[in-house]
Design a protein around this nucleic acid. Structure first.
Lengths: 153, 153
DNA sequence: CAGGATCCAAATGGATACTG
DNA sequence: CAGTATCCATTTGGATCCTG
């Protein structure tokens, strides 16, 4: 009886389709951690404070969707970790846009944080790809330099 | 008993805070419709196929959060509509980033859609603000021109 | 037209314990 | 360490009806 109203699946354009993949309470956070270099199950679990079955489910879905790949990093007891694929990496502009918006409007004050790539000082507007260093880098560098931009250093 | 684990509120950085405001199944869609110029309750309800109480709840939260403002547009039976505030408008880069990502990766093929401002042909990378026309415009213009970019027009 | 009130079905999430 | 299996509490969402 609710089948007719389940039309939100894909019926809402690109945004709708996108939200079906990353539009839940945890997925974006898992992805953000992936950008930060957190790739193992228990580490993610601890960092996010997410329930294990929920994390397992999100990882499975992200792998199925193609945003993450499950790569074995050890053999004897087979162990896996999750790496961002190009598809996942390309979500970074959206992630950064969301971060910047949150920094500007949700901090409590009028705090207009600049996102800066620690190593080279280049301000980040779009993504985690630094045109000066020609590498992608994790938000750890960003987090480390959150605050007012270094004075024209 | 679950209070100790409710730490995800604001504990996950800008992204976490942002997701608390717009990170649910409907909010982004409501916002997208606002960008498209859909501002009345029943219109939103019909366009999204969202349940009325849910829509009412989202609108209330969005107004409380400062993304939307409730403006009266008629007096006798007082009628209201919802307008994007500057705070809401500034979410457009994120919205566009999400759209572009969805267009690129979720269309089914390798379809690399260009978002173009219909009236002037300028490709949209960031937001609904067109630097050539010096106006913001709704995604209706985008939707109307979804497809391959006009050949170097 | 713009909601509020109710009620209920279903999805979600967490805690805990168990396994390879 | 990396999950899976249960079980249960809470939340969410939808349908329907009512009101100004």
């Amino acid at each position: 009886m609710a089948e007719a109203s389940r039309d939100q699946d894909g019926e809402h354009g690109s945004i709708g389709r996108t939200l079906e993949v990353i539009g839940d309470r945890w997925t974006m956070l898992v992805l953000r951690d992936a950008f930060r270099g957190i790739r193992r199950f228990d580490h993610l679990c601890a960092d996010l404070g997410i329930a294990r079955p929920v994390l397992a489910d999100r990882l499975r879905k992200l792998v199925a969707a193609g945003l993450l790949s499950r790569v074995r990093y050890q053999d004897h007891p087979a162990r896996y970790e999750y790496h961002l694929t190009p598809m996942g990496i390309e979500l970074s502009p959206a992630l950064v846009a969301l971060m910047r918006w949150g920094d500007k409007w949700l901090a409590g004050g009028g705090r207009d944080v600049q996102l800066v790539h620690g190593p080279c000082g280049t301000e980040l507007q779009q993504a985690f790809w630094c045109t000066r260093c020609q590498t992608t880098f994790g938000p750890l560098a960003i987090r480390a330099s959150v605050g007012p931009a270094p004075a024209t250093a």
